[in-house]
Simulated assay, not measured.
Amino acid sequence: MPSKILIVGACGQIGSELTFALRDIHGEDAVIASDIKSSTSPELASGPFEILDATDYDNFKTVVSKHNIDTVYMMAAMLSGTAEKFPEKGWDLNMTSLFNVLNLGKEKLVNKIFWPSSIAVFGPTTPKVDTPQQTIMEPTTVYGISKQAGERWCAYYYKRYGVDVRSIRYPGLISYKTPPGGGTTDYAIEIFHEALKSSSYTSFLSQETTLPMMYMDDAINATISIMDAPTESIKIRSSYNLAGVSFTPEELYAEVKKHIPDFEMNYKSDFRQDIADSWPNCINDSEAASDWGWKKDFDLEMIVKEMLAGVKSLKEVN
């Protein structure tokens, strides 16, 4: 029986698109999608799907053994905005699921693991401009604390047990294919839907809030690239900085307005403003570039064009 790939959290924003991309590369039967509940997505139904609770080690182990899993992409997580509402649940999901997959690696039941970190590991004391790979990290959110702790556990399991775990710190991610997942950067997705629906949007972040963002295609390419890289190329076993393009809500609004002239933007900050204010403005990802060849393809102008076209196509289908 040939070895296969398992995506945990395949119904989520990243997991769903990662599943499609990996099935295109490896074939539908070679990539097992899984989530805590069944999927209504016809795309995910194109290949094997398993109900999997990532916090249940026995359930996890059973699925891995059943499908002869070699590689796990551990994408299940509670994101920043949602985890602030349910701190203990957020910590439990994010950390227990990580320990479960790391222990599968420790027991040699899987050979390679991807686990995503985030710019949420940084905090208000982190240098905001050109944030370096190694720097001060004092996160102020449950999500960020769990990701910082997770990075240290990944590095520990690699050094102590030889677990081949690889990670990148995602910036804010932008995609039209799945709905926002409760993150602090969700305004950069919602804006496109509202621009086409009502020609107006109220941002929950202030107009001058600069954050590093990335189009989903770049994030998926980076995720697959780091996993395909030779073992000797992966020199950082905590998590690699990853940068896309940094912009403010006002700059995004101006770019959208070029395509929808009557579009209007308002601002009313909520609790996510404090989270955003603790994060960097722009990231230095030179080590990812030098170690395993990371390079982004999408700038702000391209992202806006892709998002407007994509959201419009969804509305036409529905």
Rank of each mutant, 00 (worst) to 15 (best):
S34V: 09
I25D: 00
N68F: 03
A54L: 08
D56I: 08
P230T: 00
K312D: 14
F60A: 03
I5S: 05
S203H: 07
I283T: 03
W115S: 02
Q134A: 14
N94S: 05
T210Y: 03
K106G: 07
Y57P: 04
K61N: 15
P2R: 15
T231P: 00
I174E: 10
S203F: 12
T126Y: 03
A30V: 09
E50M: 09
G27Y: 07
L18K: 12
K315V: 08
E194S: 13
E17L: 11
D53N: 14
D218S: 11
P180V: 13
Q207A: 13
F20L: 09
P127H: 12
E43V: 07
E250Y: 13
A45F: 10
A21I: 02
R152Q: 14
T62N: 14
P42A: 10
T131S: 15
A288Q: 04
D217H: 14
Y161M: 00
D53W: 10
K268I: 06
H67A: 04
M137T: 14
E194Q: 13
S246Q: 00
W91T: 12
E301C: 03
G123R: 07
E250N: 05
N100Y: 09
K312I: 04
H193W: 12
M302C: 04
I25R: 10
D277L: 14
K147I: 15
G181L: 05
S38I: 09
P280L: 11
E264G: 06
S239Q: 04
L18G: 01
W91Y: 12
G144W: 15
P280R: 10
Y57W: 08
I174W: 15
A276S: 12
W294N: 00
I224C: 01
G182Q: 13
R169P: 04
P180L: 06
D29I: 09
V64L: 03
K66A: 14
S65P: 00
A229C: 02
N68C: 05
N100C: 06
A77K: 10
M216R: 02
G183A: 11
L22S: 01
T55E: 08
T209Q: 12
M74Y: 08
A195T: 11
V245Y: 13
T131G: 11
A195W: 08
W279C: 06
L18M: 09
I189M: 10
A54V: 05
S225K: 12
S118F: 08
F86E: 10
G105W: 00
W115A: 08
S233R: 02
K159E: 14
N68L: 06
S233L: 01
N281G: 04
E301H: 11
Y157M: 05
I236D: 02
T125A: 13
P42D: 15
S3D: 08
D270F: 09
E43G: 03
E138V: 08
D29P: 02
I25F: 02
T19F: 03
S118V: 05
G162A: 05
I224W: 01
R166G: 00
L308S: 09
I51R: 05
N68Q: 11
